[in-house]
Amino acid sequence: MEGLRERKKRETRQRIADIAMGLFLQRGFDDVTVAEVARAADVSVNTVFNYFHTKEDLFLDRSEDVENLLARVILDRRPGESAVGAVRRDFFESLRDGDWRYGMHEGADLFTRRVRESAALQARLSLMTRRREELLAEALADETDADPDDVTPWLVAAQICSVVTTLTRHFAVRRMAGEDGDRIVSDIRAQAEIAFDLLEHGVGDYALRPATDG
C-alpha cells in the first residue's frame, strides 16, 4: 500500500510535470526555463531537480514507462501467445482506447512538433528508442533462454520496434498535416494489420520480381 508520504511525492511530481508540459507545448521546449517551471508550480528549482534530473526529463516524464513498455508486454503475454502476438494485441487495444502508450492520442501532433523543434529532445528521444529496443531484446532473450551469442532476440526486437515506431511516426505526421483523427486511426488500423502480418509471417515474398519467360 502506498503511504501518505509516497502519495504526496507522487502527486507533487505529477503536478510539476503537468505544469511543465503545459508551458512546453504552449511556448516550445527551448523557450521555457526550469526556473519558470518552478515558479509556475510554486516550488523551488531545487525541488524540480529533486524529481527530475534534467530539463528533458520534465518533458519526457513518462520515459521509463515508454522504455519498458514492449518488454513488459512480452513478459505479461498470455499463455500460448507469441511475442509478436502480444505486441499486436496491446497495440490494437491502445488504438481502440485512445491511450497514450503508442503515441496515438489527442495532442500527439503538438508533442511531435515540439520534439522536432528541439535538438536536445530529439537526441533524448533517440536514446529512449534505443533503450526500449535493448530492454525488449533482453526480455526476449530471457524468455527464450537464448544463448548470449544468439542475435535472434535482437533481430526480433529490432523488427518489432521498427513497426511500432513507423506506425507512431505515420500517425503523428498526418495529425500535424491537419488530417481528421478518426480517419487516421482507421487507416492506421488497416496498415497495422499488414505490418503485424509481415512480422508474423515474414517478408520473404515481398517485392518478388516475376520470373521472365525463357
Results as ranks from 00 to 15, higher is better:
2 E>V: 15
2 E>W: 09
11 E>W: 05
14 Q>P: 01
16 I>S: 08
17 A>Q: 01
19 I>Y: 01
22 G>V: 03
23 L>R: 12
29 F>R: 00
30 D>R: 09
31 D>C: 01
37 V>F: 01
38 A>E: 05
41 A>V: 07
43 V>Q: 02
45 V>H: 06
46 N>A: 13
50 N>I: 10
51 Y>E: 12
54 T>E: 14
60 L>Q: 09
66 V>H: 11
67 E>V: 14
70 L>A: 09
72 R>Y: 14
72 R>A: 15
73 V>M: 10
73 V>Q: 08
74 I>D: 12
76 D>A: 13
78 R>L: 14
79 P>S: 03
81 E>C: 08
82 S>A: 12
82 S>F: 14
83 A>L: 02
84 V>A: 15
88 R>W: 03
90 D>F: 13
93 E>T: 12
95 L>E: 07
95 L>R: 07
99 D>V: 00
103 G>C: 11
104 M>I: 14
107 G>S: 07
108 A>K: 08
108 A>H: 09
109 D>L: 07
109 D>I: 09
111 F>G: 00
112 T>A: 14
113 R>Q: 10
115 V>N: 04
115 V>S: 02
116 R>P: 00
121 L>T: 06
124 R>H: 01
126 S>I: 04
127 L>C: 01
133 E>P: 00
135 L>T: 06
136 L>V: 10
137 A>M: 03
138 E>V: 02
141 A>S: 14
141 A>R: 14
142 D>E: 14
142 D>V: 08
143 E>V: 01
147 D>W: 08
148 P>F: 07
148 P>L: 08
150 D>I: 06
150 D>H: 04
151 V>P: 15
154 W>F: 03
158 A>K: 12
162 S>C: 08
163 V>K: 07
166 T>V: 02
169 R>C: 00
171 F>M: 12
171 F>E: 07
173 V>S: 06
176 M>L: 15
179 E>I: 00
179 E>K: 08
180 D>G: 13
181 G>Y: 05
182 D>C: 01
188 I>W: 03
188 I>D: 04
192 A>E: 05
192 A>R: 07
192 A>S: 13
193 E>P: 01
197 D>I: 00
198 L>C: 04
199 L>K: 05
199 L>Q: 05
200 E>Y: 11
202 G>M: 04
203 V>Y: 10
203 V>G: 12
207 A>I: 11
210 P>F: 13
211 A>I: 11
213 D>E: 15
214 G>H: 11
